[in-house]
Amino acid sequence: MSPAPAPPSPRTRTLKVCGATSTRDIAVLATAGADLAGLWHGVPGGPAELPEREVAALAAAARATGVLHPVLVTFLSDTHALSGVLARTGIGTVQLHAYQRPSTVRALRTALPDAVIIKVLHVTGNTCLERPLLGAYEQAGTDLFLIDATTPDGRVGSTGQCLSEDTVLDLADRFTLPFWLAGGLNPANRSDHERVLHHPRLHGIDVDTAARGGDGRIAGPAVTRLARVWGT
């Protein structure tokens, strides 16, 4: 078995593809140029929601590729439950993709000091709901922020909504951590984010819909094109 890859350095622009649900998806991502596979658990009603046993199996498959790193994407806020899932699945990176408070981050950092904790920042229009808490999230032990768009009705995660470059840059100026960019990213709108791509703390991009083919499944050519166009 190949050794598990180390999490990509925050100095390296990475490509994370969310919503893998099968070993076939993992194989496609590993050969097409992705760095991280987002595995959904604790996302009620989510189209890519997986039971814990499947998360564990796909995380192991990702590590076995030697190039792909699994990320648990979750709405969970119960630190005890979340720590248990991470321990049992062997996943070392968690993306808190809901409105978990800084106290959740702090408790998770205490329980899992070696984990990589990513906190999503939800932006509706030009407004980030977590903006008043940015400093608290940093002090609590967050490693990375992920800037993502929500819909006007409050839907979060894989919304396909785009963010303006000015909104992203204004928000990034208000914290000091590395960050990922999400929100309707695709090969055609790369030029709309040129200044963000040159930001010294941009860690990578996070996509879902743009990595899929017409059948809705993760597609190798789509992932490869994303990696090439976005320079990951």
Rank of each mutant, 00 (worst) to 15 (best):
residue 150 T to E: 05
residue 223 V to F: 07
residue 84 G to Y: 10
residue 20 A to P: 04
residue 182 A to G: 00
residue 51 P to L: 11
residue 229 V to G: 06
residue 53 R to V: 15
residue 200 P to R: 10
residue 169 L to E: 03
residue 19 G to L: 02
residue 18 C to W: 00
residue 171 L to W: 04
residue 141 G to L: 08
residue 203 H to Q: 14
residue 8 P to E: 06
residue 175 F to T: 15
residue 91 I to H: 00
residue 52 E to C: 09
residue 119 K to H: 09
residue 12 T to A: 15
residue 85 V to P: 00
residue 125 G to D: 11
residue 80 H to L: 13
residue 162 C to T: 15
residue 232 T to F: 02
residue 218 I to G: 00
residue 67 V to Q: 08
residue 77 S to I: 13
residue 145 F to C: 04
residue 13 R to C: 05
residue 191 S to K: 10
residue 180 W to N: 12
residue 49 E to L: 12
residue 184 G to T: 00
residue 164 S to F: 13
residue 36 L to K: 13
residue 161 Q to V: 14
residue 229 V to D: 09
residue 186 N to V: 10
residue 150 T to D: 05
residue 155 R to C: 00
residue 109 R to L: 09
residue 101 R to N: 04
residue 26 I to P: 11
residue 85 V to T: 12
residue 16 K to I: 01
residue 150 T to I: 00
residue 72 L to G: 09
residue 34 A to Q: 04
residue 86 L to K: 03
residue 146 L to Q: 08
residue 230 W to C: 07
residue 35 D to P: 05
residue 150 T to H: 04
residue 125 G to I: 08
residue 148 D to Y: 09
residue 11 R to H: 14
residue 2 S to H: 15
residue 199 H to A: 04
residue 54 E to G: 03
residue 26 I to E: 12
residue 225 R to A: 13
residue 177 L to F: 04
residue 35 D to A: 02
residue 210 A to N: 08
residue 195 R to D: 10
residue 112 L to Q: 01
residue 8 P to C: 12
residue 231 G to E: 13
residue 187 P to E: 10
residue 180 W to E: 12
residue 21 T to I: 13
residue 29 L to Q: 01
residue 203 H to Y: 08
residue 25 D to A: 01
residue 6 A to C: 10
residue 182 A to S: 14
residue 153 D to R: 04
residue 220 G to T: 05
residue 38 G to S: 02
residue 4 A to F: 13
residue 108 L to C: 06
residue 213 G to E: 02
residue 226 L to D: 07
residue 7 P to N: 11
residue 123 V to D: 09
residue 89 T to V: 10
residue 150 T to F: 00
residue 70 P to T: 01
residue 160 G to D: 06
residue 77 S to N: 13
residue 26 I to K: 04
residue 186 N to R: 11
residue 128 C to P: 08
residue 196 V to M: 12
residue 161 Q to H: 13
residue 149 A to R: 07
residue 148 D to W: 08
residue 160 G to C: 10
residue 227 A to Q: 12
residue 88 R to A: 07
residue 191 S to M: 12
residue 169 L to I: 10
residue 57 A to W: 09
residue 194 E to F: 02
residue 183 G to Q: 05
residue 199 H to E: 08
residue 206 D to N: 08
residue 29 L to V: 06
residue 117 I to S: 01
residue 47 P to R: 14
residue 217 R to W: 07
residue 134 L to N: 04
residue 36 L to F: 07
residue 55 V to K: 03
residue 120 V to W: 03
residue 207 V to G: 09
residue 149 A to S: 13
residue 105 V to H: 03
residue 163 L to W: 06
residue 22 S to R: 11
residue 112 L to T: 05
residue 74 T to V: 09
residue 72 L to C: 08
residue 53 R to Y: 12
residue 173 D to R: 03
residue 148 D to K: 07
residue 222 A to T: 07
residue 161 Q to P: 11
residue 189 N to M: 07
residue 121 L to M: 11
